[in-house]
Design a protein around this nucleic acid. Sequence first.
DNA 1: TTTAATTTGTGAAAATTTGTTAACAGAGAG
DNA 2: CTCTCTGTTAACAAATTTTCACAAATTAAA
Lengths: 239, 239
Amino acid sequence: MIAPPKPARPPHILIIEDDPVTRATLGSYLDSHGYKVSEADSSERAERILADTGADLLIIDINLSGKDGLEITREQRALSEIGIILVSGRTDDVDRIVGLELGADDYVCKPFNRRELLARIKNLLRRTAAMRRTGRRVCAFEGFTFDTTSRQLRTADGTAIPLTRAEFELLRQFVSYPGAVLSRDRLALSVTHRSNDTTSRTIDVLVRRLRAKLNDDPKAPRIISTSHGEGYVFTAHLN
Amino acid sequence: MIAPPKPARPPHILIIEDDPVTRATLGSYLDSHGYKVSEADSSERAERILADTGADLLIIDINLSGKDGLEITREQRALSEIGIILVSGRTDDVDRIVGLELGADDYVCKPFNRRELLARIKNLLRRTAAMRRTGRRVCAFEGFTFDTTSRQLRTADGTAIPLTRAEFELLRQFVSYPGAVLSRDRLALSVTHRSNDTTSRTIDVLVRRLRAKLNDDPKAPRIISTSHGEGYVFTAHLN
DNA sequence: TTTAATTTGTGAAAATTTGTTAACAGAGAG
DNA sequence: CTCTCTGTTAACAAATTTTCACAAATTAAA
C-alpha cells in the first residue's frame, strides 16, 4: 500500500458578499495574511466555486439578494462540516440566533473589526482542521464533491451519485494522485480481488462506467484522461 | 479483538464566574439542557475541578478577581484544545480581540441571550467532538442516538427502537469503527462466536434487518454501505 | 499518406456476490 | 409443556464485477 502524499496548502476561504467594496477589502486583507481567497457575489457563484474547488471556510453576508445567507448556511451544513461565519449589517438578535442554530460557527456585525475577524477565522480553522484529521476527507472537482469517508459522490446541487465499491476505489485512487499516470496494473491492485493478467479489460470497463457517472466524454475527457499505452490520468483541477 | 466499552460522559461544561446569580442562573439553564455543569467562583477552584474531573468546555467571565479570564484562557489553551467561551460585562474591542487571539473560541457580552449562548455552545461542542470521541458510550448519527450501555437505539423524537442481541452487537461494531470496511468474518466473530463460515448468510440477513430499523435503503445506503467482496462500512457521520 | 499492429472503447453475456423472503430449529419465558 | 422470539439456513432474485467479442482509435511502419 502506498502512503497518500499530503501537500501543505494555505486554507481556502470563500467570501460570499454582494457589496463589491466590502468583498474586495476583506479579500485582500485575508490574502495578505496568507490565505487562499475566493469571492462570490451570489449563492449561485458560491455554489459553483464550492463544487469546482471546495473551501475550508465560508464568510457569508446574511443579506444577499436571491438565496440569502441563512439558506446557504442550512444547505452547506447539511452537506459538510465546513466552517461558516455569518456577517450582517444589522444587530439583530433573531437573525443571529437563527443563524447560529442553523449551524453557523460564528456571527459578526458590520462594521466589524478586521483583526477580530482574523482571530475568529484562525480559531475556527484550527477547530475544523482538527475535525478534518480525525474525520472525513472530502475533495471537490469539476462540479462534484467526493467524500472518501461516507463514500459518496455528489453533484453541485447535492444530488448523490451512487458508486459501486470498484468505482469508489478507482475514483479514490485517481483523486489521491491527481495528474499522475496510473497503470492499469496499479489501478487493478486497489480495485480487484482477483489476480489479473495483462489482457484483462476490467479497468477499462470500470473507467468507462465511472466516466459515465461523471458525465465525462471518453472522446474529450476532462476528468479521467487516457494515456495511450500507459494507463489513465486524473486531469480535473482538485480543490 | 473487540474494543472494550469505555466510560462516557455527557458534555461537561465548567462555568467560571464570580457573580453567584449569573453563575447559578446559567448553570441551571445549561443543566436543564442535559449538560453536566460545574461551577467555580475563582481560577483556583476552576483549576481544582479541571484537575479532578476535566471538562469539555469552559465559560469564563473575563473580570475575575485574582487571576482573570484572559490569563486562564492563555494557560488552558497552552494545555489543551478545550472549548473556551469568554463572557464580559463590557463591550470592549480590545478585550475581545485579545481574548480571541489568545485562542478563545468565542466572546459574548453581558447581558447575553441564553438561547444564543446555547447555540454557540452546541456548535463549539460539535467542533471539539472529534477530539473527545474516543471511548464514547453514547453516539448520535443521522437522527438516531445509540447508547451502548443501556443497549438502546432511539430516534430523534425519543422513540425507542428495540434491537435484538445480534443487531445490537452489529451496530456496536459499526459505530466503533466508522468508515472502516468490516468483513463478514469479523462481524460474525462479534455477533456469534462461530466464525470462518464462508457460505453463511447470517450477517447479510442481520444487516438487512438493522438497515430496516434504521430506515436505510440498501440501494442507496447512507448509514451502512456495502463494500462488494469485502464486507460492510458504517458511513454515517457521528455527531 | 497509407497500411498494419497495437491499444482502447463498447455492449452484453457469464460469473460472482449480495438482497430478500420464508421457513426452521433451539433457547428462554411463562 | 407450549409459546414466542432469535438466530440460522435455504432458495431465489437482484446487483456487481469480470470476461469476451468486436468496433473504434491511436501509434508505428512502410
